[in-house]
Design a protein around this nucleic acid. Structure first.
Lengths: 214, 214
DNA sequence: CGTTAATTTGAGACCATTCAATTTCGGTGG
DNA sequence: CCACCGAAATTGAATGGTCTCAAATTAACG
């Protein structure tokens, strides 16, 4: 078995797991709850770059890149295994299967970033929000966190806005559209996909980029 | 020395190096000219996800992911070393330094994707276009392709538009603004940065994400 | 020098933003 | 258990940045 030193840590709402500019000292694997990566702009804006769920590393690039180029923040009630970077790299050096799994995970990250570039660049607000919901639905389903179309979805509309490049106000109106069309139910921390096929259609969604079959 | 089987290939304008959905059989390293990654949308739109220059792999993720999740196209006069995926993976397995370099390159890719997400999501057209120009300037400078602020820049305004998520018309107007402000000179295939400090300022540009010092 | 691609210009429409106010929700203490 | 509070969600109206649709001009190329 693996003997990897790690610390289980709890992160409250908006607590930082990683800070931009920081020297990389460890990598964090989410055990419970959500976290997200973001960058802050000079004008005060914030862009969420990806959203992470249990079983995912939030900062595996810290293993090889010296300095963190973005921030990682927790969504309320997030727990993570914080692993010293050096220990993880030793493990990667010794065990080719683990090394490969880690590389694949960074490649999956990159694939999702690419799809987000497309989402932000060429999709209107309705399609864009729907696409994000589709992605989260499949990824959460993939780790067994979905039950009859329903899942725990703790993002606020403000966070959803920062993830889609929209304003909170317009995100709100967009969600109302999706609700009115009978595609989703979303209230509090609970998201239900009412009509997956139509949501997928509206979202211009193609799950190839998630590489779930790999 | 390395004994890596490869084929030097020439790609004309818009020729495809990789097609979405294709099984991955090889990886391409750019030797001369530019290439870009893109995805096509159902509505006919195109989003350019990244632009690649000599010394860069355009599809290193093909080494470990089975299916290409996006397209790669050449800009006129692109030459690449096409390397069989299996041979490259054998090399990676044998030589840890090379493996590490490949992993780092995929991580740098990912870092650039993240910055593009921010660029598309939270920057207005002027800042966005300026940011892209800043990035290309530094990356080309980094490979020694810059001379006195000037560089060969073969992107059309339509491609620039697809890379920034704008329309060609608005991209044109935005470039005119940057020209009028004395920040750049851009005509034909030649881009000159006239005032790096101010361009950098206008672009909200921070080169940390390029990790050039690593 | 002709022909097509690329760039540029103009005007009107529209999607998303801004700003401000209101309502609802979730949690906490009395 | 209800009253209160701040956070989150919702609504409205006006503004504005970018898009759309054409047409005109310029540049690139064989």
């Amino acid at each position: 078995m693996l003997s990897l030193p790690y610390t289980r840590k709890r992160f409250g709402k908006d607590a930082y797991l990683v800070r931009e500019g920081q020297r990389a000292t460890d990598c964090s694997l989410i055990l419970r709850g959500f976290a997200f990566r973001q960058k802050l702009l000079r004008n005060g804006g914030r862009q969420i770059i990806s959203i992470h769920i249990p079983t995912e590393f939030v900062d595996l690039q810290n293993g090889l890149l010296a300095t963190a180029d973005h921030n990682v923040q927790a969504i309320d009630g997030c727990e993570a295994a914080v692993i010293p970077r050096d220990a993880l790299m030793v493990l990667a050096a010794d065990r080719s299967a683990i090394r490969k799994a880690m590389w694949v995970e960074t490649l999956l990250d990159a694939s999702i970033f690419r799809e987000w570039v497309v989402n932000m660049g060429r999709r209107d607000s309705r399609t864009r929000v729907a696409h994000l919901l589709c992605e989260m639905f499949l990824r959460l389903k993939n780790i067994g966190a979905e039950h009859r179309g329903m899942l725990d979805f703790p993002l606020t509309q403000e966070q959803l806005a920062d993830a889609t490049g929209l304003t909170p106000v317009h995100t709100n109106r967009t969600l109302q559209l999706l609700r009115k069309d009978g595609l989703i139910r979303l209230s509090g921390r609970s998201l239900t996909v009412l009509d997956w096929d139509r949501l997928r259609e509206v979202a211009d969604f193609d799950e190839l980029y998630l590489h779930h079959s790999v």
